[in-house]
């Protein structure tokens, strides 16, 4: 069975996950997509909290908690 969807903010530091859904204002959804945060991309939380530090592909992004709540992810065991 697939693990439950959860907001990105609740991932532990070091945990990997796949992005399942990004919601919010269209401009910002596009901006995130340009920067690599889109459905299907694999992310790792380097540092939790707000803002959190994410590893996405080969880049590192910092993202605020209120926004990280709008990204739903599916944790993957690694």
């Amino acid at each position: 069975m697939l693990p439950e969807l959860m907001p990105l903010e609740y991932l532990h530091a070091g945990q990997w996950a796949d992005v399942a859904e990004v919601s919010g204002e269209p401009g910002w959804v596009s901006r995130l997509a340009e920067m690599g945060v889109r459905i299907g991309s694999r992310v790792r939380v380097v540092q939790g909290g707000s803002p959190c530090l994410l590893q996405i592909g080969d880049s590192r992004l910092s993202l605020r908690g209120d926004w990280a709540m709008q990204i739903l992810v599916r944790p993957v065991a690694c």
């Binding site: 919010g24 204002e25 910002w28 995130l32 920067m35 910092s62 993202l63 605020r64």
Partner: peptide, 9 residues
């Protein structure tokens, strides 16, 4: 409203 903050390292 507070805007979204995304920044690349």
């Amino acid at each position: 409203e507070t805007p979204v903050f995304v920044m690349e390292m």
